[in-house]
Design a protein around this nucleic acid. Sequence first.
DNA 1: TCGACTTATTTTGACATCAAGATAAATGAG
DNA 2: CTCATTTATCTTGATGTCAAAATAAGTCGA
Lengths: 164, 164
Amino acid sequence: MDQVDRILAQWRAERPDLDVADMGTIGRLKRLQAQLGKGMDRVFEAHGLNAASFDVLATLRRAGPPYALSPSDLVAWTMVTSGTMTNRIDRLEKAGLVRRDRNPEDGRGFVVALTEAGFALIDAAVSAHVDNQHRMMAPLTPEERRTLDRLLAKWLAGFEPPEG
Amino acid sequence: MDQVDRILAQWRAERPDLDVADMGTIGRLKRLQAQLGKGMDRVFEAHGLNAASFDVLATLRRAGPPYALSPSDLVAWTMVTSGTMTNRIDRLEKAGLVRRDRNPEDGRGFVVALTEAGFALIDAAVSAHVDNQHRMMAPLTPEERRTLDRLLAKWLAGFEPPEG
DNA sequence: TCGACTTATTTTGACATCAAGATAAATGAG
DNA sequence: CTCATTTATCTTGATGTCAAAATAAGTCGA
C-alpha cells in the first residue's frame, strides 16, 4: 500500500466506472522520476552543477574529441528549445566551463567547446553520477533491471520511432 | 537502436571504464516521462487545464464529498511546496473552478472547495485522461503492463517507504 | 547579382516552480 | 492570562523553461 495505491483506492471509491490500473503505472513512473531526479541533483550539486549544466557538459564530453558541438547539435541531443540552450551555454560560459568559438565554416554559427576546467569537472562528475545511479537501482535485482529496461525500451519505441 | 542506445554507445567509446546500463534505464524512464507528459498535456489543454490545475482539481474530486481540502492537505497529496499551491489555487479561483472558504474551525486556514463548474470539468477531464492513458500504454501487452507496474512499485518502495 | 527563402542563434515575455522569509492565528507551559 | 512556540498560508526573489519574434548570415534560382 504505497501513496499511488491510496490514490487509486480513492478513485475506485469515487469513480468505479474508471479503470485506473494504467494511471497507477504512469503515476509510479512519475514519482520514481521525481525521486531519481532529486537523487541525481545531489550529486550534481556536489560538483557545482545542476541537471541542466550536467546535461550540456556530458553531451560535449561523450561526443569525443575535440569536445565541441554547435548549439544546434546540443539542442538535438538534449530535447530542449534553442532559447533554453542559449541560456544554458551563457551560464556555462560565465562559469568558465565552455567556450563559444565562431564557426569558421559558417558565419551564422558557433561551436561550443569544453574548456580544460569543463573537461576535468564533467569527467569527475559523470563517474560519481554513474556510481549514484547504481546505488539508486539497488532495490532491483540484476534480472529485474534487465526486464525493466526491456519493457521501458519497448514502451518508449511506441513514442520515439527507432530510426537507426 | 534508439536515442538512448546511441548515447550509451558514445559513453562506451569515450569512457569504457563506466558501466552505463543503469544510465540507460534511467534515461529511458526520463524520456518516457517526457513523452507521457506531452500526451497528457494535450488532453488537459483540450479541457482548458494544464497538469498543475488538473492535479489540484483531481485531488479534490477523488477526496469525495464535500470535495474540499485545506491548502495543507493539497500540498501533502501533490508533492509541491506551499508557495506553488497558493499560486495554483489563485489561478483556479480566478477561473471559477474552486472557492476559498475560511475554515470555521481554524482562523488561520482555508478550505478549498470545487465549485459546480469545477466538479463538472474535472469529471469530464478525468474520463478523457484515463482513456488517453490506456491509449498511451498500447505498446505493451496486458501481462507486460502488470510486470512493469510490479517492478516500478518495488523500485519506488526503495524511495518512498510504504507506511500503510 | 539580386531577392526570396532558409538556417542558426539570440531575445523577449510569460509561466511554474522552489526556498526562504513574512504574516497571522492557534496552542500550551507556567 | 501571557508569551514563546508552532502551524497555516502567503509573499518574495531567483531560476529554468517554452513559444514566438527578432536578428543575422548562408543559399539558390533566375
